[in-house]
């Protein structure tokens, strides 16, 4: 990617509304792929629609989006491909209804993963956030529904949160279209490497668990010194995830970028979604 050559915007004002251009579905030769992950009903599709200008279905009802949808936007002269994923509670279970999102985050290798969370239920949403941070070190937290949080007098200290998680945290109210520009800026900064994330890693007090994870991680690093998210691979192996087992077996683990799993390319579901 020719990031450095195009990067002539060191001095641009950070919040420059004119910088965001909605590209709808015209997104040939994009520079970065951005995934929108998050628990069900947190406003992922609403964020997606805001950024791309498309009309994905939204609704106050978990499980609205079931297949992934793609769209594009341009920011600071870079073209981003945005992928709206179905809501997931967890990336650790083997249930098939969460496969689409899980596989994309794991194998689609997005340049940036935006995790959309519900500011009124942060704790519950952090479960998924922490899991995503085990996989990738390029993520942005979109603290959505901040208007709802205010309405219910819940305050979230986004700086503290950002410090703890090691990634940018952007409060948004997607429905009111506030915070979208800051969000695109954060995406841009993480994608271009201007912001270097230091993601939080899960700690456990349970001895057996620690022992198992450490032992296995060590073994994996010995065989695959180039793999960065060793702990995640270890976790998945301990859960018996077949796709990771296959990757280890075939030696593809070192080059996981290339095993872009077969994900149904049903881009832009304009299908009837009731």
């Amino acid at each position: 990617m020719n990031v450095m050559m195009k990067d002539n915007c060191e001095t641009c004002p950070v919040h420059n509304l004119g910088n965001l251009k909605k590209l709808g579905i015209n997104m040939n030769d994009f520079d970065f792929v951005v995934a929108l992950a998050g628990n069900p009903n947190t406003g992922k599709s609403t964020v997606f629609n805001n950024l791309t200008g498309l009309k994905q279905h939204t609704g106050n009802w978990p499980g609205k989006t079931v297949t992934r949808a793609e769209g594009g936007f341009e920011y600071n002269g870079f073209k981003f491909k945005l992928v709206d994923l179905p809501g997931t509670y967890s990336l650790l279970s083997t249930s098939t209804d969460e496969e689409v999102a899980r596989d994309f985050i794991l194998f689609g290798q997005p340049d940036v993963t935006v995790i959309v969370v519900d500011a009124t239920r942060l704790e519950r949403n952090l479960n998924l956030v922490l899991q995503v941070l085990e996989i990738t070190d390029r993520a942005v937290l979109c603290l959505n529904l901040i208007d709802e949080a205010e309405r219910h007098k819940i305050k979230v200290d986004e700086r503290q949160l950002s410090k703890d998680l090691g990634i940018p945290v952007i409060p948004t109210a997607a429905r009111l279209k506030t915070g979208m520009d800051k969000l695109s800026n954060a995406i841009y900064e993480v994608a271009s490497g201007k912001y270097v994330c230091k993601p939080y890693r899960i700690k456990t007090k349970i001895k057996e668990l620690n022992y198992a994870i450490e032992t296995l991680s060590k073994k994996i690093s010995e065989v695959y010194p180039q793999v960065t998210n060793v702990r995640w691979i270890a976790l998945r192996l301990l859960e018996g995830d077949q796709s990771i087992i296959d990757a280890v077996k075939s030696g593809d683990l070192g080059t996981i970028k290339e095993i872009k799993h077969e994900i149904d390319g049903q881009s832009l579901e304009t299908e009837l979604t009731a």
Partner: peptide, 8 residues
């Protein structure tokens, strides 16, 4: 086995 997470 692969489908159900290679149970042990």
């Amino acid at each position: 086995a692969a489908q159900i997470g290679n149970p042990v």
